[in-house]
Amino acid sequence: MKRFLDLVAERQSDRDYDTRPVEQEKLERIYEAARLSPSACNAQPWKIIVVDKPEIRYAIADAASNKIVGINHFTKKAPVQLVIVEEKANLLSSFGSWSQHKHYPHLDLGILAAHIILAATDEGLGSCVIGWFNEQKIKDILHIPNSKRVLMVILLGYSTQSHRTKKRKSLSEILSFNTY
C-alpha cells in the first residue's frame, strides 16, 4: 500500500512536456492497465484512440484549446494523446443504469482514466486529463461516428514540471462515518 500511496501522491496534472518520444514498451503497459480496468457488469464501454502522429495531435490540440478562455494551449506539447470514446454498455449495465438512474459508463470511464494516469505515473510519465474541447472537431478529425461521445483526452509524455505539493481538503472535510 505504501507504494500505491506514493504513486498517488506523485501523480499530478502536467501541463508542460519535453519533445522526447515515449517508449513503446511503456505505452503498452499503460494500455494493458487500461484493458484490465474494471467496469459495471464487465461492460467495458470504451474505445481508446491513440493519437501520436504530429499532424493529428496538433489538430486535436487545436480542438482542445480556447484563445478566449486561454486554456489548454499546452496540449500540443504532449507526444501522445489518448482520446477516450464512450461505447455502448452491455445489456445488464444498461439496465442497471436505467433502474438506478446512474449512467454507469461515465463511472467506468472515470475508473479507466484513473488506471491510465496512475500507470503513466508508475512509468515515469506525466499526464493530464482534458475535458474542455470541441467534441465535434475531434469526431471529424478521427472519423468518430456522430452517435458516439468523446468524453476526455488524456495527454501522456515526459513532464518538464517539478512536483507540486497537493492542496487537498482534510479527511475530516470529506469523510464521515455512518451518517452524512
Results as ranks from 00 to 15, higher is better:
Glu23Ser: 06
Asn66Tyr: 02
Val85Pro: 01
Thr19His: 15
His73Leu: 07
Thr19Gly: 15
Lys102Leu: 14
His73Cys: 01
Thr75Trp: 00
Leu36Val: 02
Ser37Glu: 07
Ala78Cys: 11
Lys67Tyr: 12
Leu107Thr: 09
Glu23Leu: 11
Tyr58Met: 11
Ala33Pro: 03
Ala78Asp: 08
Tyr31Glu: 10
Ala33Glu: 02
Asp18Asn: 10
Arg20Val: 12
His73Pro: 03
Ile48Cys: 01
Leu107Cys: 15
Ser65Ile: 02
Asn72Val: 03
Ile71Arg: 06
Val83Pro: 00
Cys41Val: 12
Val69Glu: 15
Tyr31Lys: 15
Ala78Glu: 01
Asp108Val: 01
Tyr58Ala: 15
Lys47Asn: 14
Leu91Ala: 15
Val50Ala: 09
Lys47Asp: 12
His101Phe: 08
Gln24Phe: 08
Lys76Tyr: 11
Ser39Ala: 13
Leu36Asn: 06
Leu91His: 05
Ser65Pro: 10
Leu107His: 09
Leu36Lys: 12
Ala89Met: 13
Ala33Met: 04
Phe74Ile: 00
Tyr58Trp: 14
Ile49Asp: 00
Val50Asn: 13
Arg20Cys: 05
Glu23Gln: 11
Ser99Phe: 12
Val83Ser: 00
Glu55His: 09
Ser94Tyr: 12
Ile68Pro: 07
Lys47Phe: 03
Phe95Cys: 07
Val85Met: 00
Lys88Arg: 07
Gly70Met: 02
His106Ile: 07
Ile84Cys: 07
Ser39Arg: 14
Lys88His: 11
Ile71Ala: 08
Arg29Gly: 08
Ala64Val: 05
Trp98Glu: 09
Glu55Thr: 09
Val80Thr: 02
Glu55Lys: 08
Ser93Gly: 03
Tyr104Gly: 09
Ala63Gly: 08
Lys53Tyr: 15
Asp108Phe: 01
Ala43Leu: 03
Ala34Cys: 06
Ile48Gly: 00
Ser97Thr: 13
Ala33Gly: 07
Asn72Ile: 10
Ser97Val: 08
Pro105Ile: 15
Ser65Thr: 12
Ala34Ser: 10
Asp108His: 02
Pro105Val: 10
Ser37Arg: 04
His101Tyr: 05
His73Tyr: 04
Ser39Met: 13
Gly96Asn: 08
Ile56Leu: 09
Ala61Gly: 14
Tyr58Gly: 05
Ile68Asn: 15
Thr19Asp: 09
Leu36Cys: 14
Leu82Gly: 03
Ile84Lys: 03
Arg29Phe: 08
Asp62Thr: 07
Ile68Phe: 12
Trp46Cys: 05
Ala61Thr: 07
Leu27Tyr: 00
Pro105Tyr: 06
Ser93Arg: 02
Lys53Phe: 10
Ser94Gln: 11
Ala34Leu: 04
Asp18Leu: 08
Ala34Asp: 02
Ala64Pro: 02
Lys76Gly: 06
Asp108Gly: 01
Ala34Val: 11
Leu82Met: 11
Glu55Ile: 14
Ala64Ser: 11
Asn66Gly: 14
Tyr31Ser: 08
Pro38Trp: 02
Leu92Thr: 06
Ala40Gly: 10
Arg29Lys: 11
